[in-house]
Design a binder for these strands. Structure first.
Lengths: 213, 213
DNA sequence: CCATGAACCACATCATCATGTGGTAAGAAG
DNA sequence: CTTCTTACCACATGATGATGTGGTTCATGG
């Protein structure tokens, strides 16, 4: 069986060493590098005779110096194929989403038992993704309809007009596309604004792209 | 310990009965209703003397008649507080996202072992969310940067201007907010348009909301 | 049969936007 | 010291957008 090459960046010495000893004890896992900050990680990597192989990286989110989220971008530049999982105490929405948007593939709470973290490493290496349940819940909530009162508020024709707006078309182009006069387009947009209680193209585009229509 | 009231909608009799007998065998789980289609589910519910309590619903995605995704909306109208988990053989991107957008809180592959499904029920009831690893991976990939060529193309100041545009502010309001002249706002926007190769507010808002900036 | 609402069109007016030209000041990089 | 870049500001012009008023046609449902 192939070894999984694991790296750990975590500033808390106790946690870092626990992870290293527990996970490294598994015959299929080899901890190739550990560091207490992103800066220290790059230093070690750059000083190495040949850069260490890394399949999976465990990255703390609250690090001294460069934060985990900030570090994500730099790490991904150097190791584009590495699977990165965040390890965190806090479950703040914005941090979760910033991390995911910056390329983290998993997000594990620090309250997770070691054996589960170990399973997560294997899951990730298999091309999956492990999310702590409470975090997964926050993620799926971002897909859910927020306050979908504007459900069937708009006619099909109005939806077509909105499509045009979202595509960045001018009133004139929308008119051409739907073979109607520019004044009719204006008319529809007036009604759309009333229905959605907005008063600018920007707001309509925003609502549409956020799935609120 | 409180019972978890479970409902199952699944057309495959073998799978439905396996789920019912295995999950129902757990002392903390009570299967209150099962059906082989969304229509049949509503029929049973409506004919009942008093509507059954349901905490968690396992919903197949490929059903005869009304599909699971279609059924989601109706089910959520009748039971807004019920946690719904999809159960599926297929892992097609669009179905996953449609289900999540329609209000599913979890997504379980049919290849998942019964014991794991059982754990998932408890996780979900605790307010968490269970995603099969391969499905979770697809979900996080939707957050990831696609083809982020416009990476650091824009200065911090330009990003602030874009924030204003996305919020639907006029040039004047953006100027007020950042304490600069409206002409300076215009100037920034000119440069932003060149950098992003667009020529309208709408396109900038679109790119920004799609995470392409 | 009439009210209602969707979709269609026109004309008008003021605000905002897109774009150009031209200029100042400060800091970074050569 | 010069060149670039970023950020700042002004003036000008034509295009586009926001909003109002007024009107027609057609289908739907009390």
């Amino acid at each position: 069986m192939e070894h999984i090459h694991l790296a750990i960046i975590e500033d808390d010495t106790i946690i870092r060493e626990s992870l290293e000893s527990f996970l490294g004890a598994h015959p299929a896992i080899q901890v190739t590098i550990t560091a207490d900050s992103v800066e220290a990680f790059f230093e070690k990597v750059d000083q190495a005779v040949r850069p260490p192989v890394i399949d999976v990286l465990i990255l703390d989110i609250g690090l001294p110096g460069m934060s985990g989220i900030e570090g994500l971008r730099h790490l991904r530049l150097k190791y584009p194929n590495m699977d990165i999982t965040m390890l965190t105490t806090f479950e703040e929405d914005d941090k979760i989403f910033k991390a995911l948007c910056s390329g983290a593939c998993s997000y594990i709470s620090k309250r997770t038992p070691m054996t589960t973290i170990q399973e997560a490493i294997f899951t990730i290496h298999r091309g999956g993704s492990f999310m702590s349940p409470s975090i997964a819940r926050k993620v799926v909530q971002h897909f859910m309809p927020k306050a979908r009162k504007e459900e069937d508020l708009l006619s099909p024709r109005q939806m077509q007009i909105i499509e045009g707006l979202v595509d960045g078309l001018s009133y004139k182009l929308i008119g051409d596309k739907l073979s109607i006069s520019i004044d009719t387009v204006r008319d529809h947009i007036k009604h759309i604004y009333r229905a959605l209680e907005v008063n600018s193209k920007a707001e309509v585009i925003g609502k549409s792209l956020k799935g609120e229509i």
